[in-house]
Design a binder for these strands. Structure first.
Lengths: 137, 137
DNA sequence: TCATATAGTTGGTGGTACCAACCATGTCAA
DNA sequence: TTGACATGGTTGGTACCACCAACTATATGA
């Protein structure tokens, strides 16, 4: 049945399917995809607002609001930098860390289910391919 | 340098990278990613509102607004069904068709550039893998 | 020390997406 | 055939997202 997809169409299809999974999972937990990404980033880091904006590829003002809303939910907290009084760093609270764990638990099986029909070799190729992306961290 | 990514992380990384490309490209043309998806769907179809909502996995009310805005820009137009007076179908206008072509011209080289570092074999794997997705059309 | 750059926030705009409520039309069963 | 129910679409309200422009506070450096 499956038509032969162009590379671009394939990338788009996969992107929308994964995005869909993330959107649904986030919504179930009362979050947005962007908040989910932010929590993911904050799992291993405690960046400044500017650095967080860079990693999310968002305007700083967008991140201000994002952090505001997440802080209202008790997931993240701001802290002043000790070396530069202009700078604010953002980190997970205990509740935020729990939320990140819960997200992973919800998302992982769904993504795996999404890709389960692909061969192991093709899954491995996806892992390699993602590692070559310019933006790969 | 690239760390070995889990399947889930790989899918997420690729998704965000592609989504980013689509967001930027759409923004340059004064569109959103959703509008871009809609135009893509309408290239080969003239669905009803409900069917369009299904394909985009959106609420019908969301699609109402989406079509409203695209119609205001002259990209799509509604037409009443001849067989069921409740039903409205959506189709591209000439301008919408042009826009779809322009989008493709902008997006295609950027997605290819994004994936150019991957081996041809891995790119082929991505095409196969996308074809196995449950949602693949 | 004064000009300039940087970090972050605020306010305003427009788009996205949901839900609940609603009207019009269609369908099916009594 | 008519009355109950289902379906298609829109509207109104809410919350969020993301941008830009303008602003304050702090840092830097000529």
């Amino acid at each position: 049945m499956p038509v032969d997809l162009s590379l671009v169409d394939a990338a788009a299809q996969l992107t929308f399917a994964v995005h869909e999974v993330l959107t649904r999972a986030a919504a179930e937990l009362g979050l947005s995809v962007t908040q989910l990404r932010m929590l993911g980033i904050l799992r291993d880091r405690t960046p400044t607002m500017a650095s967080l904006a860079d990693q999310l590829a968002l305007d700083r003002s967008s991140v201000s609001g994002l952090v505001d809303r997440a802080a209202t939910k008790g997931l993240v907290e701001r802290a002043p930098s000790e070396t530069d009084r202009r700078v604010v760093t953002v980190g997970l609270t205990a509740a935020g860390r729990e939320a990140a764990v819960r997200i992973e638990a919800v998302v992982e099986p769904r993504i795996e289910a999404l890709l389960e029909s692909a061969s192991a070799a093709d899954q491995a190729a996806l892992r390699r391919l993602a590692a070559t992306l310019p933006s790969a961290v």
